[in-house]
């Protein structure tokens, strides 16, 4: 957990800066609006965390979010009665995509970077084919309430955070991290490495489904709704001090990374800096975070044999 301290300090600093620039932020409505905006990315970051800490990547979540929203709009088409069946279908789609990603990665031994890059392209292509570039249909009010009403979004976020923390404390989480740290040692200790990794991908797919449900209500239906979210999620996780390659980092810190990223975007926005800069900012952050993580101040380390 010590690695996670810097991210909370940075986050606190950014929140103060936002509050200074925009006092409305301190009012319940203002803060709720912020939480509502953060929720989808925070949930995606939690899902991405499971995959990254096990030593893999999931690049497919952005496209998956788009798929979820587009499918929801088309199937619901404004019909309130379809809300719950479609919600269930969306969750199933998320779980299935995650399952396929996981199985291809572990059983066919395709590196997850390639597996999920492929999945990302397949899903984007499918959306394009199905919609011809312009999604049809409309979401129901019952569907949009989750992303639109701050209370709902926050409630879902809280549930996700609690579930993620509990999972990481359970046998699953501990063996997942061990597998990410040293796959061979984990295997020789009886850990079902493939199974825990597949489960991590499934959780990531599930997080994309939930994020898609929130974003559909929050941002509306478009073929770009999930664009580049996979990179935002990875940036958030890395920002939280989670090491690419697996085995190190805390899920709460990864979620805090999502808050920090969103706070940064908010602050840039408040100061009238173009949203177009967001990509560049993310690029700088992801490189800097990994570089700083690699530095780790050698002079502060005692010789290992002293403990």
């Amino acid at each position: 957990m010590k690695r996670a301290i810097p991210i909370f300090v940075v986050l606190a600093g950014l929140l103060v800066a936002i509050a200074v620039a925009n006092p409305f932020f301190l009012e319940p409505a203002g803060f709720l609006a912020f939480l509502k905006r953060v929720a989808p990315l925070a949930i995606l970051a939690a899902g991405q965390y499971f995959v990254i800490v096990s030593g893999e990547f999931d690049l497919s979540v952005g496209s998956l979010v788009t798929v979820e929203v587009v499918v929801a709009a088309r199937l619901i088409d404004g019909d309130e009665a379809m809300t719950w069946p479609v919600l269930i279908l969306l969750v199933v789609i998320g779980l299935l995509v995650g399952l396929v990603n996981g199985l291809v990665t572990t059983k066919l031994r395709v590196p997850s970077f390639i597996t999920t890059l492929g999945a990302m392209l397949i899903l984007s292509g499918a959306v394009f084919l199905w919609t011809g570039g312009a999604p049809r249909g409309a979401l129901s009010q019952g569907f949009r309430v989750f992303g639109r009403e701050g209370v709902w979004a926050v409630a879902i976020l809280v549930v996700v955070v609690i579930a993620a923390v509990l999972l990481m404390r359970a046998d699953f989480g501990r063996t997942l991290v061990a597998a990410g740290d040293n796959e061979k040692a984990a295997r020789l200790s009886g850990v079902r490495v493939d199974r825990v990794r597949v489960f991590a991908f499934v959780l990531s797919g599930l997080s994309a489904a939930v994020a898609g449900i929130l974003l559909g209500g929050f941002a509306g239906v478009s073929a770009q709704v999930g664009q580049s979210l996979e990179f935002q999620a990875i940036t958030a996780v890395v920002l939280g001090g989670v090491v690419l390659g697996g085995g190190r980092g805390h899920v709460v810190a990864a979620i805090a990374g999502a808050f920090t990223l969103e706070a940064l975007f908010t602050l840039l926005n408040l100061h009238g800096i173009s949203g177009a800069l967001e990509y560049a900012v993310q690029g700088v952050i992801i490189i800097a975070a990994v570089a700083v993580g690699g530095l780790r101040l050698p002079s502060l380390r005692l010789s290992p044999s002293k403990v």
């Binding site: 061990a178 740290d181 040692a185």
Partner: peptide, 13 residues
């Protein structure tokens, strides 16, 4: 290489 997850705590190992 085969016995320990080196970045994890004594307890977790």
């Amino acid at each position: 290489a085969e016995g320990l997850a080196l970045n994890q705590s004594v307890r977790d190992n």
